[in-house]
Design a protein around this nucleic acid. Structure first.
Ligand SMILES: [Mn+2]
Ligand SMILES: [Mn+2]
Ligand SMILES: [Zn+2]
Ligand SMILES: [Zn+2]
Lengths: 148, 148
DNA sequence: AAGCCTCTTGCGATCAGTTGCGACTGGAGA
DNA sequence: TCTCCAGTCGCAACTGATCGCAAGAGGCTT
């Protein structure tokens, strides 16, 4: 999970509030969980952690907040090749896009930012006259430790 | 949805049988639906169509068969940016990988094969010592008709 | 500080996808 | 052609995600 060099705590909350979105105790709890995360979390993990901050948080509020953050472009939703189960994973969206690689054997997730990926997207925008808002490149395969 | 120039009907079925996988009436029904599809289908659409071929097909059999085909590398699973709902879409995997672009306004799905995408994957394999088995690049944004 | 409007929430019902189980069957071998 | 059993199936119970609704609470206005 990529981290910015210097992160102001509560930044996510400020970004939302700055867009005129109402701040609630439940949202603050969920946002703090996402902000402090050191790995990709799924909805049930976010719920569990958020409840330690505010015990009233309900499952549906987590899903609704994740949906809000997605629509606002503040988080990205990942499949991670559905290595375990059908669920989705979430991570904060930072300045630089990155690729996710999931090892089909050991389950390790590797992240990688690539210049070629950036130019591929530029090329897509030019060649297909498509304005890209969000992009997701995920690959499944075998990591250096697991390939033979 | 990309189509091969000449497709032998029943090819998917032969591919499975050739790998020693048992062929059943239900599987034949589901395979034919996937083979004849002219667009990306979700599980409930596949179930509905398969039942018109064999009325006994159950929901769980569709999911189990999709899972089998995924594991065999014969179909790919797509999110299509979850333009509508959380579900997944399926398409046959053919020789050439392609990118999916989903328009967030009109919902149109555009497919695109790219030389740069192919070399990005090669570069990934080299730089990360990762052996790619399956890859998925999906982008959301605005198509030529919808961007202003 | 209080009122008010609107957005948000928890709850329960519902829907979609998964799993365990006993019955069934494809197809290899006799 | 018949037998046989591992693999597959339908079913029903279960789990995770969604939705509609009435109650609750941000935060602007006064
Ligand atoms: Mn990541
Ligand atoms: Mn997905
Ligand atoms: Zn590995
Ligand atoms: Zn469009």
């Amino acid at each position: 999970m990529p981290f910015p060099q210097t992160e102001i705590p509560g930044r996510l909350q400020k970004q939302l509030a700055g867009r005129g979105i109402r701040m609630t105790a439940q949202r603050r709890a969920i946002l703090s969980v996402i902000e402090m995360a050191t790995k990709h979390l799924d909805a049930s993990q976010i719920l569990r952690k958020a409840r330690r901050v505010d015990a009233t948080v309900d499952r549906s509020t987590v899903y609704r907040t994740l949906d809000l953050l997605k629509r606002q472009g503040l988080i990205d939703e990942l499949d991670l090749m559905h290595i375990k189960g059908e669920g989705h994973y979430y991570e904060r969206r930072l300045d630089r896009d990155h690729i996710h690689m999931a090892c089909l054997r050991c389950g390790k997730i590797t992240e990688f930012a690539s210049k070629t990926f950036d130019s591929l997207k530029k090329q897509l925008e030019r060649d297909c006259h498509f304005h890209i808002v969000v992009s997701r490149l995920e690959v499944g395969g075998y990591c250096s430790g697991c390939r033979r």
